[in-house]
């Protein structure tokens, strides 16, 4: 046990004494944190609203135009208004018609419409109704949501991006850990360790421990800087991060063992990193994805992270994803241990 800890300590020192690794690690963590904090925390500052008034457009036109931060588009009939909302030309649409002499107001929103804007539309609609009829209650008020019911509400783009950032920070560990293993083999320092009472299983355990320790601590640091951790999300986040760390460690074992030079390591590392990052597209462009993207193990890390952190889901909602990721990790880790073991003797 003491021997393993000694090796872990040495590994951590060795990794951060490598300037390239130290720089990319800290750049990744802090640059992403800064980007996150300068990105707008609101979805959009400007609201755009569409209006259709069967009668009395002139009476309200001036008043509505004075609303601050609202872009106004007038539609000529109800269908045109619906289309405006559907095509996301406007975020909400308000129609005012007279039904058997009684005013009827319908607020159209799309599933893409953020909650704040719906509320704003609601206020404007009531205000308009009041100023038209003089009585707030004497109108029929309706709210219609257009489009497929996508789960949850719209959230700020930066909240989506921070999931991508976490995964990016994890993948930097490919280089750190891959290079550590590759150097121990190439420079034969592993031999020097293995002629002491340290056994091959102890040596490999130490490498797994180093990888998990580094990935977890960097992930948690990043989580703090990216406002990810709250009381409700800390536990699931750490569980998922652990699964992610295991994935990174397993892949790095393979990476470190197959690369014969630092150049080879960066080339393979970049390739693995790109594949690892492909599923983050699903964060930016949600929708149905092909089998191939779902086969990439990081997909099964990204989806639960996004759901739990951004939409308030819980870990038990993602058991299939975790099972997939867990079994993938076991297979790749066994493969990594096997190839490393072969290089050590």
């Amino acid at each position: 046990m003491n021997r393993i800890l000694s090796i872990v300590k040495k590994d951590v020192i060795q990794i951060f004494r490598n300037r390239f690794i130290a720089v990319i690690t800290f750049l990744a963590i802090f640059v992403y944190a800064i980007i996150f904090h300068v990105m707008p925390s609101k979805v959009e500052e400007m609201y755009s609203m569409g209006f259709y008034f069967e009668k009395g457009r002139e009476a309200v036109e001036e008043q509505i135009s004075e609303e601050e931060g609202v872009e106004v588009v007038w539609a000529d009939d109800e269908n045109e208004l619906k289309k405006l909302v559907e095509d996301e030309d406007v975020q909400v649409g308000l129609s005012f018609t007279l039904l058997e002499g009684k005013p009827k107001i319908v607020l159209y929103t799309s599933t893409q419409t953020p909650e704040e804007i719906r509320e704003a539309g609601d206020v404007i609609a009531r205000e308009a109704a009041y100023s038209l009829s003089g009585y707030p209650l004497n109108v029929e008020f309706d709210e219609v949501v257009i489009g497929p019911d996508l789960l949850g509400e719209q959230i700020p783009f930066r909240n989506k991006m921070r999931i991508l950032f976490v995964v990016m920070i994890l993948s930097v560990e490919f280089f750190a850990l891959g290079n550590l293993i590759s150097e121990e083999i190439r420079k034969k320092t592993a031999d020097a360790i293995l002629v002491t009472p340290v056994s091959i299983p102890e040596f490999m355990t130490a490498k797994v421990a180093t990888g998990i320790f580094l990935t977890l601590s960097e992930g948690i640091l990043a989580a703090f800087l990216l406002n990810i951790i709250s009381f409700d999300t800390v536990l699931p986040f750490v569980v998922l991060l652990f699964l992610g760390a295991l994935l990174v460690v397993a892949v790095s074992f393979v990476l470190g063992t197959i690369s014969r030079s630092f150049l080879g390591l960066t080339a393979y590392g970049t390739l693995f990193m790109i594949v690892f990052m492909i599923p983050t597209f699903t964060l930016i462009f949600p929708g149905g994805y092909s089998f191939w993207i779902k086969a990439v193990p990081s997909y099964h890390l990204i989806i639960p992270l996004d759901g739990i952190i951004n939409y308030g889901y819980v870990l038990s909602d993602y058991l299939p994803e975790m099972a997939y990721l867990g079994s993938f990790n076991i297979v790749v880790l066994l493969l990594g241990l096997y190839v490393l073991r072969r290089r050590l003797t």
């Binding site: 021997r3 004494r17 490598n18 034969k188 031999d191 002491t196 009472p197």
Partner: peptide
């Protein structure tokens, strides 16, 4: 060893202390 398999980014003393700890 035939190759000089030392930890190049560490000092002489760090190298010696690390290997001592393994014993």
């Amino acid at each position: 060893f035939e190759e000089k398999n030392l930890y190049e980014e560490m000092s002489a003393i760090e190298n010696l202390k690390f290997f001592a700890s393994l014993f």
